[in-house]
C-alpha cells in the first residue's frame, strides 16, 4: 500500500509513420511520455486508453513495450480496427491513460544463443529485448511480415543482433515456405532459447515445432483483454492441466509446455 498511482495520464509526444511507406500500410510508432514506469522486462506490456476514446471503444488497448527509456515509452502500432485507428490518428499533446508494465516478460539468458521469432507487429517486444540484452551478438532474429520491411522497426534491430533475416509473405503460397524455414530454424536452435511473438497461427506453429525438436521456447500471446490487470477473466488461456490461466497477469509470455495451445483453443 502507499503508492496508488499506477495508472497515470500522460501526453502523446509524437505519432509517426514507421518508414516512408508506413502511413500507406498503417504502421506507426507512438511515443508517449514515460511517467516513471517501474523497471520493465522485455515482453511486458502496457495498457493505453486515449481520452479520444470517450465511451467508445470501451476497452483500453494492450501493447508490448517496444522501447522504454527514462523519458519516453515507444509503442509499435498497426492500425487495424477502431481502437488502433484512433491511436494512430492521435497528435502530440493528446492525453492518454497509461498503466503498466504488466504481466511477465521473456526469459533472459545472456550467455545462451537466443532466437527471436517475430510475426508482423509481433516484432515490437524484440526491439526492447535486443536493446536491453547484455550480449546482443548472441541473438538472432527471424522475421515474417506482409507489409514492406521498412514499415517495421527491423533495420535498427538487424544492426544490433548477431544475425537477422526477414521473410515477406506476399501470397498464401509463401506461407509453407516460411513454415519450412521456421522448421529449420527451430531444429537448429533446439539447444538454445527460442522466443516468439506474433499472430496466433504463427505461435501455434512455433509451439508445434518446439515440441517436435524438444526446444525450450516461449510464446507471447495476444489474447483479447479488457482490463489488463486480472479483473475481468476475459483473456484466459487453457494451460497444460486444462485450467484457465490469465494472459494479463500470468502471461502474456508463457513457456510452450505450460499451455495446451490446441489448434482450436
Amino acid at each position: 500500500m502507499g503508492n496508488f498511482g499506477a495508472c497515470r495520464d500522460v501526453s502523446i509526444l509524437s505519432v509517426a509513420p514507421c518508414g516512408p511507406e508506413g502511413a500507406a500500410h498503417g504502421c506507426y510508432l507512438l511515443e508517449l511520455e514515460n511517467p516513471g514506469l517501474g523497471p520493465a522486462a522485455a515482453g511486458q506490456f502496457v495498457m493505453v486508453r486515449p481520452e479520444r476514446f470517450g465511451q467508445n471503444p470501451i476497452w483500453p488497448r494492450p501493447f508490448s513495450i517496444c522501447r522504454l527509456t527514462t523519458r519516453t515509452l515507444t509503442l509499435f502500432v498497426q492500425a487495424c480496427g477502431r481502437g488502433t485507428d484512433i491511436l494512430c490518428g492521435l497528435a502530440a499533446g493528446d492525453k492518454a491513460a497509461l498503466w503498466g508494465p504488466l504481466g511477465q516478460g521473456f526469459a533472459l539468458e545472456p550467455e545462451i544463443p537466443t532466437v527471436m521469432l517475430a510475426g508482423g507487429v509481433g516484432i515490437a517486444p524484440f526491439v526492447e529485448y535486443a536493446a536491453t540484452h547484455p550480449a546482443p551478438s548472441n541473438l538472432s532474429l527471424v522475421f515474417g511480415h506482409r507489409q514492406p520491411l521498412s514499415c517495421y522497426p527491423f533495420a535498427a534491430m538487424a544492426e544490433l543482433v548477431g544475425r537477422a533475416e526477414a521473410f515477406c509473405e506476399k501470397t498464401p503460397d509463401d506461407l509453407p515456405v516460411f513454415i519450412e524455414r521456421l522448421d529449420a530454424v527451430v531444429a537448429g536452435a533446439a539447444s538454445g532459447l527460442i522466443l516468439a511473438c506474433g499472430p496466433r497461427p504463427f505461435l501455434l506453429t512455433v509451439a508445434r515445432l518446439a515440441r517436435k525438436y524438444s526446444a525450450r521456447a516461449q510464446v507471447s500471446l495476444e489474447n483479447r483483454m479488457a482490463c489488463g490487470v486480472g479483473g475481468c477473466l476475459g483473456c484466459v488461456e487453457k494451460n497444460a492441466l486444462g485450467a484457465y490461466v490469465q494472459t494479463c497477469t500470468e502471461g502474456p509470455v508463457f513457456w510452450v509446455e505450460e499451455l495446451a495451445l490446441a489448434e482450436d483453443a
Partner: peptide, 23 residues
C-alpha cells in the same frame, strides 16, 4: 469453477459482452 471456453468477451458500441461463466 473453470468457466467458459474462449473467446469470452467482445467489444460492442459503448459496451461489451461477456460470457466468463463464473470462473
Amino acid at each position: 469453477r473453470l468457466g467458459n471456453p474462449m473467446p469470452r468477451i467482445a467489444e460492442t458500441p459503448c459496451g461489451m459482452l461477456n460470457a466468463i461463466g463464473l470462473q
